[in-house]
Amino acid sequence: MHPVRKQRLYLVLFVALFSSVAVGLVSYALRGNINLFYPPADVASGKAPTGQPLRVGGMVEKGSVQRADDSLEVSFMLTDYQASVPVVYIGILPDLFGEEQGAVASGVLDSEGVLQATEILAKHDENYMPPEVAYALENSGYDKKGKTK
């Protein structure tokens, strides 16, 4: 290769490499802020701030959803199977919200460790299948990843 072109090739590689390193360092330094939510384990171990808005994400614990009779208040537990965070919310839940499904709640942790949520988002997972397949899987005793339940 012509020496001038070789030099320009090195320059291009240099630009690509060092911009990657710079962005890598920035996103490493800001990794806590890039995460959309805290897992319940971080809340339980006190890593999540209390008294200021934050999001907690996890699975809605089976059998934990309780609705009030006279209002839109709903309470449930968010879990990552290591720790659980109780959530209280007044409002309309998204259609895909359900037990044993992912959800992200944003709100403020009160002094008792209850998340007073102002917004609930359903988190969809990466599994896509027709209803018949889901029904067949349900009966076969295997979950979507092919592991026995």
Partner: peptide, 12 residues
């Protein structure tokens, strides 16, 4: 909007 319950969220 119908799935998550929001049009936009500032996730990564």
């Amino acid at each position: 909007k119908p799935t998550w319950g929001t049009w936009w969220v500032w996730d990564a």
